[in-house]
Simulated scan of single mutants.
Amino acid sequence: MSSDSSEPKETFGPASTASTASTTGSAKPPPPAALAAKVRTLAPSMTRSMQRVAETVAGDPAGSAALTVTGLAERTGTSEATVVRTARVLGYPGYRDLRLALATLAAEQAAGRAPAVTADIAVDDPLAGVVAKLAQEEAQCLADTAAGLDTAQLESAVAALATARRIDVYGIGASHLVGQDLVQKLLRIGLIAHAPTDPHLAVTNAVQLRSGDVAIAITHSGRTTDVIEPLRVAFEHGATTVAVTGRPQGEIAQYADHILTTSSARESELRPAAMSSRTSQLLVVDCLFIGVAQRTYDQAAPALSASYEALAHRHDPRPPHR
């Protein structure tokens, strides 16, 4: 069997159990249909050898499911330790669990229930083809995010938001636009929410947060300093913290009480990560909002009605009664 000198040795006895627990936590393994999305999301943060394993199992689930851990290590030019480590990073307790998921995914693909991978958008694609590819990719992005979303974490985040004294939402660029979308929704049901536009203001706002407040960080990469820093400050001041991220093992995770993982389409020259991740972030934002509106319905329903009425009057072309 070929070895991978870039990877440290890994034991498979009791010592590795703790490692598994710390990597996967109490989260259940992702469903087979979400495996390709998981690979796309986590591959950039993996070592090259782990990327080879991940891309191989996602690209050929049937062939990979037929291999033992030794066989897959030989096929990818890595080590058994790398294969096991990759399985754990993808959310499976071990290779046996990943292998079962691969077999299920292969059966779904054979039956036509699992979607094919969408081709990248090319510079010479006709506009009709671009529309079709974008529609398929975004639909798959939403499906992948829904399949991989930890509903226990979502419930906890919703519960914290529903009773929050104050809510801060941090994001940069496209993620900030998603944060603004959440804030305007929360304001319309009577909650106090802010989405600072300036990173320094975000930190100074975070200093004011306490127990009973909530801070939400939105970052696809999980390593945006201008988003991590205010979340860290909020976390250290006792606020409940939530991370909406495509990299659940990124730096952002160490300051998040609850992690909501998003998926994204493959990044390409004409479709950057900020564009592809926005779709799944908006889904998570909508889930948070609906969950909070359900929990606070007696307050939320009249507030929404009042905002609808105010907007209707604003757009009424008739002059006001004198």
Rank of each mutant, 00 (worst) to 15 (best):
A143R: 15
T20R: 14
A87E: 03
S79P: 12
E80M: 07
I228C: 05
A273Y: 05
E229P: 01
S16L: 01
D257S: 04
L182D: 10
A37C: 08
R166Y: 12
V69H: 00
A21N: 10
Q153D: 11
A62D: 05
H194S: 09
L161D: 06
A66N: 09
P302E: 03
D97S: 15
L191V: 06
A215L: 08
S6A: 08
S16C: 01
D181A: 15
A234D: 03
I189W: 07
V89W: 11
Q140M: 13
A193G: 13
A73K: 00
P248L: 06
A293F: 02
Q294R: 15
K38S: 14
E7A: 15
S22A: 10
A34G: 05
R247L: 00
A253W: 01
L260H: 07
A81I: 06
P115H: 15
A301V: 02
R85K: 14
H220E: 06
G246M: 05
H313R: 13
G77S: 11
R99S: 15
V158Q: 12
L182P: 07
A160C: 09
R188N: 13
V89F: 12
V244Y: 02
T82L: 01
A65V: 05
V53P: 02
S2M: 05
A33F: 04
A273M: 07
A215F: 12
R232W: 05
A58H: 07
T151L: 09
I228P: 00
G179I: 06
G173W: 07
E155W: 04
H200F: 13
V203A: 08
V53H: 06
R188A: 10
A27Y: 03
A256M: 11
A27S: 15
A139V: 12
A243Q: 06
S49V: 00
G59W: 10
T11A: 02
L149T: 05
I192C: 03
T78D: 11
L186Q: 10
R188K: 05
Y95V: 07
T245M: 04
V131F: 09
E309S: 06
L42D: 14
H200N: 11
A81N: 02
A122T: 13
L42C: 09
T23G: 04
H313E: 12
Q153A: 15
A103K: 11
Y297S: 15
G190V: 08
V284P: 05
A234S: 12
P230W: 07
G25T: 09
K133I: 04
T225K: 14
T219Y: 03
A253H: 10
V117N: 04
I252G: 02
A265C: 08
D120S: 13
D120Y: 04
A206K: 07
G238A: 11
R85S: 15
G222H: 04
G13H: 03
T24K: 08
S175I: 06
T86D: 07
G112I: 07
Q254L: 06
D298L: 09
A303D: 02
Q109E: 12
K38G: 14
F289V: 10
A110V: 03
V89S: 05
P14A: 10
S16V: 03
H176T: 00
G238V: 07
T241Q: 01
A62C: 03
I189C: 07
A54I: 13
A110Y: 01
L231K: 04
D97C: 04
A239R: 09
N205F: 14
L42Q: 11
E10K: 00
